[in-house]
Design a protein around this nucleic acid. Structure first.
Lengths: 193, 193, 193, 193
DNA sequence: AGTTAATCGAGACGGTACGTCAGGTCTTGGC
DNA sequence: GCCAAGACCTGACGTACCGTCTCGATTAACT
C-alpha cells in the first residue's frame, strides 16, 4: 500500500504529487491505529514537515481529503418518481457509508471534528453539500406535484442524514437497502401530509 | 469551580466523596481543552491513582458520569394525545441536549466513543434506554389507537434521535421547541401513514 | 551495554536508579553519532520526559555526568620532587585524556559548552578543580623550596592544560608520557627562572 | 546589517560578489544564535543552493572565511630580540583573538570542528600556519644565538597557543598584553634552559 | 490497645505522538 | 550555466497526555 518510492522533485513549486500522496495516505490510514502524522508521512513517502507546511494539523489533512472524496459520492438519481429517486439515493448513500473503510473514516472524522475547528468547518461544508443534494431531489418532486408546495424539506433532510449518522456512530441498527427503502417511504409520508 | 479542598479520609473503605468528586470534575471538564486525566484528578482534589483504581480509563469515568446524569433526563409525559406527548418529550429532550454544558459533554462523549470500547458500550446502553423511552411513548399511542398497529416504530425513533445527534454534532440547525414540534408532527404523519 | 531492563519504580520520589542510568547512558554515548536525547533515554531504559524532568537539556546531563566523573581523575602524586610529581601528574592526565572514549567525550563537551550556558558553567567548574589540583602540586614544591616564592603559577598551570586541550581539540600532536615529561621539565624551567 | 539588496547577475559565470556576500554573512553570523544555513543565505541575499554549490557544508564556508581572515593576522615582527619579537607577536595574537567578534567566531569554529571533518581539516591547516609563524620567530632567535640550538620549539609553540585556546574556550582568565608579556618571558626561560 | 489492611493525595515513571527546527538536496524560471 | 527562491526529505528536538507504580498518611476492622 506504500506509495511508490520514486517521485520527482518539482523544485520551488509545490509538489502536487506529494500533496496527493499525503491525502491518499491519510485516507488509507483513517480509522486505523496507525493514523499518525509520522505514519501518514512515511506511508506517503514524505517528510513530516511537508505535511505541516500545507496543513495546520493532521485533522486538516483529513478535512481536505474528505472534501476530495465527496465528489465520488452518490449523485442525485432521476427515476421519474419521488419514491424511486429517494429509495435509490438513500440506498446508495447508506450502503456507501456502511462500507467498512468508509464507515471507520466517517466515524473518525465526525469524532475529530468535535475537537478541531478546521475539521468542524470541513464537516459542516461536506454535510451541507450532501443535504443540498437530497434537498434538490425533494424540490424536484415538489415541482412535479408529488409533494405539497410548502413542505418543510429541511427537517426531512435532517431526518434522513440523522438516521444515517446516528446508526453509523452508535451502531445499534443496520444501514442497508431495506432501511433505505423504509426511510424513503416514511419521509414521503411525513412530507406529504 | 475547584472542589472544596477538605474532604475527610475514610481509611480503608472506599471514599464515596472522592468518587463523586471525580465524576463531577469529569463532567465539568467534558467538552473543554482541559479534559485530561491529570486535570480531572487535580480538579477533584484526588490522586490520579484513585481515578484509575475505580475506572479502567478516562472514558469509563465519563461513561459512568453520563449514566448518572441520564436519570435527570426527560421522563415520558402523559398528556393524553400522541402529539402532546411527543411534542413535550422531544422539546424536553432537545432543549436539554442543547444546553451548552450538556451539548459539549454529549458531543465529546459521542466523539470519544468512536475510539474507546468502554465508552462505546456505555453510549450504546444510554442511547438504547432513551430509545426505549420514546418507543414506549409511541407504543402507548398505538394501544390507544392513535397509531396503526404494525407501524415501524424503531425507524421513527431513530429519526427522532438522528435529528438530535446530527444537529448536535454538525451544528447547522437549532435544537429548540419549534424543531421539536415540527418533528413531532412529521413523525406522527410518517408512522400513521 | 544497554541498562538492565528491570529497575523498580520508586513511586512519588525521584528514582535514583533512573538518574544514574541516564548519566551513565549519556557518558556512554558521548562522542558517538547516537548522542541523542532519544538514544540516551532508550539506552537508559527511561522515558524521554524523565530526562527533561530533571535536566533542562541534553548538555546539562553531560555537565552533571562530567562532574561525577571528575572525582575519578588523577590525584596529586607525592614522589618527593617537583619533577617527579609533575611528570607523574601530567602523564596520568595526558594518557587519561587521550584514551579514545575520554578523548571524544572531552572534545564534545568542550564543543557543546561553547553554545550552552549550563555546560559552559560545568566546564568552568570542572577545569577550575583540575587547575587547583595542579596548582597545589606546584605550591607544595614552592614550600619545599624547589621553586621560587613569588612565581606566577597560574600561567604555568594554564600552559599545562593549554597544551592538553589544544592537542586534544586540534589533534596535531600526541598526548603521551613523553610529551608529559618534556612539558614537566619545560614548566619547571620557566617557573624556576 | 543585511547585505545590499542589489547585486547584478553575472549570467553563466560564477558571481564573485555572491561568494563574498556569503563569506561575509557567515562571519557576521558566527557566534550568534542565527548561525544557520538559511540565515546565512538570507543575510547574503543568496539562494541556499548557491552556498551548497560552492561549499560542501556550512562548516566549509566558515573554514574558508576563517582562512580569508587569517591573512589579517599578526605578522611575525622583527624587533631585534626574542623577547621583543615574542612579546609583540603574542600581544597581537592575544588581543586580536580576544576581540569579541573574533572571540565568538574562533570559539564556534573550534567547537564545530569537533563534529565536522571539513572544518577539522581547515582548523588543522589554519592552526598549523600559525604555529609555523611562531616557530619561525623562535628559529630566527636560535640562529641569532639567543636560544640554545637543540631546543624543543614545538612544545613551546603548543604552550603558547595552548594558553590562547584554553583561555578562549573556558574563559577563566584574560587574554591581554600583560598575559602575553608574562608568557613571552616564561617561554624564553623554558626554552633557554 | 495494637496490628493489619485498604484507601487516599501526590507525583515520578515508561511510552507514544505531537508539532517545530535545521541541514543539505533538488527543481523552476529569470538573467 | 549561474542565480534567487523555496519545496522537499531527514532526523533530532522538547512537550503533552496516557495509564502504572510506589510512597507516607490516614483510618476501619480485626486481634
Amino acid at each position: 500500500m506504500t506509495a511508490e518510492r520514486k517521485r520527482p522533485h518539482t523544485g520551488r513549486q509545490r509538489n502536487e504529487a506529494a500533496r496527493t500522496a499525503i491525502l491518499d495516505a491519510a485516507m488509507a490510514l483513517l480509522g486505523t491505529a496507525r493514523f499518525t502524522a509520522d505514519e501518514i508521512a512515511r506511508e506517503a513517502g514524505v517528510g513530516k514537515q511537508t505535511l505541516y507546511r500545507w496543513w495546520p494539523s493532521k485533522a486538516a489533512v483529513v478535512a481536505e481529503a474528505m472534501g476530495r472524496r465527496a465528489r465520488d459520492i452518490a449523485p442525485v438519481p432521476d427515476t421519474g418518481t419521488v419514491l424511486g429517486d429517494l429509495r435509490e439515493f438513500l440506498a446508495e448513500t447508506f450502503t456507501g457509508a456502511a462500507e467498512p473503510a468508509n464507515r471507520n473514516a466517517l466515524r473518525q472524522i465526525m469524532a475529530s471534528a468535535q475537537q478541531d475547528e478546521h475539521l468542524a468547518e470541513a464537516v459542516a461544508g461536506f454535510t451541507a453539500a450532501r443535504r443540498d443534494a437530497l434537498r434538490s431531489l425533494l424540490e424536484r418532486a415538489g415541482r412535479r406535484g408529488e409533494l405539497p408546495a410548502g413542505a418543510d424539506l429541511d427537517l426531512a433532510v435532517d431526518q434522513a442524514y440523522g438516521v444515517l449518522w446516528y446508526r453509523l456512530l452508535v451502531g445499534h441498527a443496520p444501514l442497508d437497502r431495506r432501511a433505505a427503502e423504509q426511510l424513503a417511504r416514511a419521509l414521503i409520508a411525513s412530507v406529504g401530509a
